[in-house]
Design a protein around this nucleic acid. Sequence first.
DNA 1: TATTTGCTGTGAAATATTTCACAAGTCATT
DNA 2: AATGACTTGTGAAATATTTCACAGCAAATA
Lengths: 255, 255
Amino acid sequence: MYINLLGYVCLFKRKCKNLLHKCRILLNYSVKKITALSKNMTKSKIPKPAIERLCTLYRFLDMCEEEGTTCISSAQIEKQLHIGSHNVRKDISYLNLSCSGSGGYNIKKLKSQIAAQLGFTQPQNICIVGLGRLGTAILAHERIAESEYNLAAGFDSNINKLETIRTRVPVFPSYEIESVVRQMNITLAIIAVPADAAQSVADKLIGAGIRGIVNFAPVVIKTGKSGVFINNVDILGKLNLLTALLKANSSEIYQ
Amino acid sequence: MYINLLGYVCLFKRKCKNLLHKCRILLNYSVKKITALSKNMTKSKIPKPAIERLCTLYRFLDMCEEEGTTCISSAQIEKQLHIGSHNVRKDISYLNLSCSGSGGYNIKKLKSQIAAQLGFTQPQNICIVGLGRLGTAILAHERIAESEYNLAAGFDSNINKLETIRTRVPVFPSYEIESVVRQMNITLAIIAVPADAAQSVADKLIGAGIRGIVNFAPVVIKTGKSGVFINNVDILGKLNLLTALLKANSSEIYQ
DNA sequence: TATTTGCTGTGAAATATTTCACAAGTCATT
DNA sequence: AATGACTTGTGAAATATTTCACAGCAAATA
């Protein structure tokens, strides 16, 4: 049997280097950990899937409230949202609160508690880049106006188009993105431009200090900057997912 | 110390009933399990998060292919998609294939393998309900035309509007949903109607045998029928999610 | 008042998913 | 051919998430 001995020596050397590197990392990590602990930064982490579910729940509660319902039980939520009642209760328990009354949760209370924990209380300024059909459709979205988000600006690269748009939202040419975003303190953005323009728009937005992007363009937006969150809503991707789930036939709902 | 003894007796009785119920369920379950095993239904399950990532990857590979790239490594994918390279490799390993060449995966091969495993090979007929700004924007989506999905029909309740829409996709009034969906063998649907009409439209679609729905209306669609997959794309929900993630400051990307 | 029902909240157990470490392979360079 | 710098693929370990079971209430009912 032939053994590549020198290959192994090489491997060994590399491992030593890796080890050294890891020692350095570990040292760094320890220091950070100790600092964090000493500052008592024990942020009780909510699992990400739970955060997603809570967002859906929040939207749902909003709907219920409009319809005039005041109370809802975890069992009812299970029926409507296809989230197991165990799961619902657990998710809510992460919030460390209690808003149970007779017949389940008090919707108003629960909603405000979720809002407080997830940070929906402070109104945020948002903007839309790309005022084509999709962009203007979002501009006209009735519920955004009623929400905790303030649609502060719209952008489009076609200056002639800007004048034809009838909306109460102030609109600007795309080259003003950076200055307007900074001036108006806009934190979230919605991208609704064609695929080829999406990445450069995203770069501008991130450069201007945007913290989160919902991207409707059919490309995957990349970001080098950490702390910026991107949510790619690609319709073909969604269709693909449905196809795949149908084939795998796992659970029924995907939010 | 006061003990509610009778309460406990009652609890005990309830537990006995529950136990009996569970025995029945267990019996059923066992029978099913044995049948399944005997039929060798060992469908090697891909975890749902992995399926989601593979869908994103598939879209991304499509993009790369258009740009003319032929090979890509897991490390490069990590940089672009913010999915850890370990994770990428693991996900791909669920597919039980090997398409590695020099310098990483062969894009064309990998793409076709994902398509085969996730069921993207057979073209599917899809339809859009609601031809407002959002609906027509989707109708005009260039990439859908090039994709494995065939946009077979559009529906709107406003009959007068139908005549004004210029598109190659055949359009019908909403009351024909059931018959057209059945006739054309449409399996997936996109809902782009106002919030108040969404649920009734969904019910019609599901009644007609639709298997999956992408819902852009800002409500959570419910389904009693199992085997129907619903993907609610609520823009306010997405914004909420970004806000919550920013507050929690967990990872950076959410697809 | 006695009993029953229905509900939440939550540690602990069970399960699912991600990360890790490394064998094994390919190719370019010395 | 020796070496080094890249890969992937994958069991096993580590971690995260979900599910379960039930105490503990509150309200409804007999």
